[in-house]
Structures are given as C-alpha cells and as structure tokens.
C-alpha cells in the first residue's frame, strides 16, 4: 500500500518538525513548506493527498491560500486541514468558510495527532 502524502505548511520550524516527525512515525510521506509560495511549488510537483495548513502564515495567510487552492480545478480535491494556534472561537468557522475540510487546534497532542489526521484522509479504493 502506498503511504498517503501529507504537506505541512507552518512557518514555525519547531512546530513544523514536530508535526512532520510525529506523522512520519505514523507511516506517512511528509512534505514541508514554511510559506504559501514554497507550498504552491511543492503542490504542483508532488500532488499531496492532504495539506495541514497553519492559519497564521507570513505573507499570504493560510486561509487566503486555502481559498486559492479550493478555487483551482487542479487542486480542489486536496483535503485541507487548518492548524489554528488556539481554540479561538470563530477560527473554526473562518477556516470552514475559507474552504478547509477540518481543523486541528495547536498545541498538537502527539498521541492523538496521527489518528486525527487519518480521520480527514480520503478513503482509498
């Protein structure tokens, strides 16, 4: 079975590494990007199945980037899960409105994170 390919977009290097390593141990293929621009290049070349999107990115923010991806025929099918910095009321609503398929609040719980991500992955035929 081919491992699902997950792109993590987060400008905080430590958080990015933590999420990457935890998911890598869960058997996923992980791609990293620290902003929307580099994420766009990776998406074009590598076609991830799911994107974990930090909302507070420098430059183009995560929600705007999500809207762009969901408006594009070529990338619309990619599952996008927002990573929100705190369980701020309204952030979940804003993430959904932008087109996110779900959201996970930071700080991530390393014990439940892989399962939470798996729950959002499209079931493969």
């Amino acid at each position: 079975m081919i491992a699902a390919r997950i792109l993590i977009v987060d400008d905080n290097k430590t958080n990015l590494k933590l999420a990457s390593d935890v998911l890598a141990f869960g058997g996923y293929e992980i791609l990293n990007a620290s902003d929307a621009e580099s994420a766009q290049q990776i998406i074009e070349t590598s076609r991830p199945d799911l994107i974990l999107m930090d909302i507070g990115l420098p430059g183009m923010d995560g929600l705007t980037f999500t809207r762009l991806l969901k408006a594009d025929e070529a990338t619309r099918h990619i599952v996008i899960v927002a990573l929100t910095a705190s369980a701020m009321k309204g952030d979940d609503v804003r993430a959904r409105e932008a087109g996110c398929d779900g959201y996970i609040t930071k700080p991530i719980d390393t014990r439940t994170f892989p399962a939470a991500v798996a729950g959002y992955l499209p079931v493969r035929a």
Partner: peptide, 8 residues
Amino acid sequence: TPLNGIIG
C-alpha cells in the same frame, strides 16, 4: 508557541 515544541 514555543511551549508547543517543548511539550510536543
């Protein structure tokens, strides 16, 4: 934010 890394 840095606590996420420490705890995680």
